[in-house]
């Protein structure tokens, strides 16, 4: 395997990075590179220019800077105290070596994955390529329209969604803030609602009340290292006087975007996470998710596990 030739740019400021992107027709932003570069080796989405965000201090200056490595987040005692579920999710990504390079921004903006896409060029030629790569046909669904159903499998997104985080993006029009819940569009190729090509994540900020939430994250994967999640559920509860004043449920690896499921959280509001309410909410989540046949485990099993993950995440949010 060889990485194809590209020109590496190493801007020192966000402005410089934005300028480089503006001046280039074909580029990728590079953060940790632990996902992007393996894809390049397989001839997936290779660009002529790669703009590294590694040397822009601004991206690592805040606790939730996009350039902070997952290893740094894993070992940040302040974050561990404030947002333990985020730290736990970060420490479960891939392997210790990968977490040394992989970043918060990279994990959040992780490209979608599919069995029919994440394959070598030889494989795609033999099998037939797909919408997300070189062809105009989806290999998962007979007629998905022009929507790609590749699976989003970032681990941090559901936890950040539950905490009500906001993304701060830098781009040609300057910096802007987008609530995380409004960021993604359900399409494995386009992925974002209105993120312009030249925009990148600078940092995240949690909602002002984020620390009032008790959050837990559960994920499904065959091996407890290396593997991307094949299902992930974050649950969050804002407790008030012993009752769940607000409940949020978010999923990853069940669709081409991470999602909040507000109506499922509603089921639990006002109670104190009684067993039957948890079961009801978990079953509702199982009914709601629609995993595709494009990862290692079967969609039926992943769907069934949504209930277990949801239940266990909610149990992790109980008081006392």
């Amino acid at each position: 395997m060889r990485i194809p030739d590209f020109t590496l740019h190493q801007p020192l400021t966000a402005e410089e990075a934005v300028g480089l992107a503006k001046g280039s027709e074909s580029f990728d932003f590079l953060s940790g590179g632990t996902d992007l570069l393996p894809n390049y080796k397989w001839g997936l989405g290779c660009r002529e220019n790669v703009i590294s965000l590694r040397h822009i201090p601004e991206l690592s200056e805040t606790p939730l800077g996009a350039g902070r490595t997952l290893w740094e987040i894993e070992h940040d005692s302040t974050l561990a105290e404030q947002f333990p579920a985020l730290v736990a999710a970060a420490s479960g990504v891939a392997t210790p070596l990968i977490r040394r390079s992989a970043t918060l921004g990279g994990n959040l903006f992780l490209d979608t994955r599919c069995w029919h896409f994440n394959q070598t060029a030889d494989w795609r030629r033999a099998h037939g390529s797909c919408l997300k790569a070189e062809a105009d046909q989806c290999r998962v669904l007979p007629d998905p329209g022009d929507i790609c159903v590749a699976t989003y499998s970032g681990d941090l997104a559901p936890v950040l969604l539950v905490h009500g985080a906001t993304a701060f993006l830098a781009g040609p029009k300057g910096e802007r803030a987008v609530p995380l819940a409004d960021l993604w569009a359900p399409d494995g190729i386009r992925r974002f609602k209105d993120v312009a090509g030249g925009e990148f994540l600078v940092r995240l900020e949690m909602a002002p009340d984020a620390r009032d939430w008790t959050v837990a994250y559960q994920k499904l994967r065959l091996r407890e290292s290396f593997d991307f999640p094949e299902g992930g559920v974050a649950a969050g509860v804002r407790w008030q006087d012993g009752k769940a004043a607000e409940v949020r449920i978010a999923t990853t690896a069940y669709a081409s975007v991470p999602s909040l499921h507000p109506e499922i959280g509603e089921i639990l509001v006002g109670g104190s996470l009684e067993e039957n309410a948890i079961e009801k909410a978990s079953k509702a989540l199982q009914a709601e998710v629609r995993p595709m046949k494009n990862t290692s485990m079967s969609p039926a099993y992943r769907k069934k596990m949504a209930r277990v993950l949801c239940r266990r995440a909610l149990l992790g949010c109980r008081q006392g």
Partner: peptide, 21 residues
């Protein structure tokens, strides 16, 4: 395999147990 084509010819998708398992 799918129709005779190997689907998981990589060390990510061919699941050798890790030290954790």
């Amino acid at each position: 395999y799918q129709k005779g084509q190997l689907l998981n010819g990589s060390l990510l998708e061919y699941k050798i147990p890790t030290p954790i398992e």
